[in-house]
Design a protein around this nucleic acid. Structure first.
Lengths: 241, 241
DNA sequence: AAGCATACAACTATGAGACAAGTGCGCACG
DNA sequence: CGTGCGCACTTGTCTCATAGTTGTATGCTT
């Protein structure tokens, strides 16, 4: 529909939707009013619109926030793959391949903002069969307290004295490298799911980087989306160059 | 010779009809009055004529707008890959490969609960390059109104007169089949991301099944998790047998 | 009869501002 | 050291103003 008049609040709502899904949403109505040069009435209309979509919510005297994030129970158990396997009644096991403090690759250095980190490389087994090759990077400072046997027994979520905030998970596919193929007992070049998970603490500083490689024939991800629009969309699929 | 005088408002109506159908309708009565050098009365007569045909509609104090397209606007924000590409400033395009009402495979039949369905197979292009092969299944009843050109132009979210509820997305990896390899211009057997998205209506009944195949080297998914525990965990990774 | 010119009412989106009510945080006070 | 108070800031909800729009009526011209 093309109105005669430009409806400002729709444009603003569209822009805000992008920001919300890009997780760059930190502003009050008056701030937004200033940045968009629109009155609070208009900003509110846009926000209410987003609220009706279930994207954001507000509390009087507190502010607006991305819906779904703060509503969750704060003390729930952190979900790891192992938890899940155990819930399904499978025996899960970790086999540590590497445990060392090293200078990580540039990408990891820049994300974690450190020059040295603990690198743990391990193989995850389910019912005795390998199903994931995992590499976890953790800042030297945080990893200093950890021992090799600890990381074999427990997850980083359990071990680190950090209150975790959010995480960003990236899911892609690749062909198995020779190393991974041998570890996972699959043919070289067969498809694998590659996931990178960057976990931040409550303050939003990245504290853990995990790279997971799963053989494609055994694994898949499912994501339940309460609202399609809030979903795999903007924060979702991305073309890489 | 009888009608010496031309009936202006009919000409104007004809001209406006062309503009409306070309979706170039952005003007108020007074603006139109200026551009056609006709009085508002005449313009109104023309517009009323178009209204009687159901082409346009108006609301007092708001303006005139193209009728029918109002229905698709509230749904237009549903996140599709195309929306995202456009937001990034890329040209997105659909190329329909198949459009047929067929008896779908057992899995689709059981999910949708129907025996016959519209199957649309298409290729998605970004900047002229193929980046996804998509197959969408939609119950016959719902798909009956759709035309091949419609599904080429717009997404199912925009086209179907359904209020959508949630969706379940499954992400896996596979090796490219010969067909897909050719369509996506990648080597046979190279890794691809395979996604299945089951979209339900507001009542929770599945109404759409989409299968998406992306070449792995160009695509990846990102999922932002406000809290790790609420994440990929419970509904997340799954071992398939 | 078709069109022009004009006026006015009703409505809409937006702007500007005021005030109430709730929240979080720091600071002084005991 | 704890506790309560006040302050700054936020949303929620009004009122009033304004420009632009459609709805409608009236009188006039050709």
């Amino acid at each position: 529909m093309r109105q005669v008049r430009t409806i400002r609040y729709r444009d603003i709502a569209a822009d805000l939707r992008a920001r919300v899904e890009g997780d760059e949403f930190t502003a009050s109505e008056s701030e937004l009013s200033a940045t968009y040069s629109a009155s609070r009435v208009t900003i509110r209309k846009a926000l209410e619109h987003l609220r009706s979509e279930g994207l954001v919510d507000s509390r009087q005297g507190f502010g607006w926030f991305v819906a779904g994030s703060t509503v969750r129970q704060p003390l729930a158990h952190l979900a790891t793959i192992e938890d899940q396997l155990e819930a399904e009644g499978r025996a899960s096991e970790r086999q540590i391949l590497d445990f060392a403090f090293v200078r990580p690759p540039a990408r990891v250095r820049s994300i974690l903002g450190v020059d040295k980190a603990l690198k743990v490389r391990r193989l995850n087994l389910a019912d005795g069969e390998p199903f994931a090759r995992v590499t976890v990077w953790c800042p030297e400072e945080l990893g200093a307290e950890l021992s090799r046997s600890q990381v074999q027994e427990r997850s980083f979520y359990e071990l680190l004295p950090v209150s975790f905030g959010g995480a960003t998970q990236t899911i892609g596919a690749d062909a198995a490298s020779a190393d991974d193929a041998e570890l996972l007992q699959i043919p070289v070049g067969s498809p694998v799911l590659v996931c990178e998970r960057i976990t931040a603490d409550a303050a939003g500083t990245p504290v853990l980087i995990g790279e997971y490689v799963f053989p494609a024939h055994r694994t898949e991800f499912t994501v339940d989306l309460a609202h399609p629009e809030a979903s795999i969309g903007p924060s979702g699929l991305r073309l890489v160059e």
